[in-house]
């Protein structure tokens, strides 16, 4: 396409490039360059499955144009931790049974990370509000809330040197 532009993205601490037109969303651009860990659920900002951290803030990548992410730090769920080194949030979700079909999970884990970055000791309400943009059809959220609390406790413990 005539208005394609090559943009420099920094994804999970690595420099990457994507050649995309102006209307391409960050979700599409990330998936095009291989970040299949970012999931597409509605492409309208209704479900939160595509959430990533953009300079530390959780955003729906389907509502973010790829060009506007240039020069910013993008973190996907895989940027938090990988199979051999799970992030405490990922570990809490995995061990607590908070992922069922798992399709909403990358977005929910990103949103959970954003909650805990903002407030290491969130209340039940803080967690609910922080996850209100992420739909899940499998878990009924109960185990998701438990996993976030569990991760919060682990992270606080790590911080205080326990």
């Amino acid at each position: 396409m005539s208005n394609d532009r090559t943009i420099a993205l920094r994804v999970n601490g690595r420099d990457e490039r994507a050649t995309v037109p102006a209307h391409r969303t960050l979700l599409e651009a990330l998936r095009e360059i291989g970040h299949r860990e970012v999931k597409s659920g509605c492409e309208k900002g209704d479900c939160g499955a595509c959430a990533v951290l953009l300079d530390g803030m959780a955003v729906d990548s389907c509502l973010t144009l790829a060009w506007t992410a240039e020069g910013k730090e993008v973190t996907t769920v895989l940027g938090l931790g990988d199979l051999d080194a799970l992030h405490p949030v990922q570990e809490a979700f995995s061990e607590g049974g908070a992922a069922q079909c798992g399709y909403c999970t990358p977005g929910i884990i990103i949103a959970s990370k954003a909650i805990l970055d903002e407030n290491p000791n969130p209340s039940e309400d803080d967690i609910r509000v922080g996850l209100s943009g992420n739909l899940c059809r499998c878990t009924g959220y109960t185990k998701v809330f438990e996993a976030v609390r569990e991760a919060a406790a682990t992270l606080r413990g790590a911080e205080s040197g326990r």
Partner: peptide, 14 residues
């Protein structure tokens, strides 16, 4: 812990 859980929480599951 379910066998499918680690892949799902990292986004590794295709």
């Amino acid at each position: 812990t379910r066998t499918d859980a680690p892949g799902k929480v990292t986004g590794r599951t295709p």
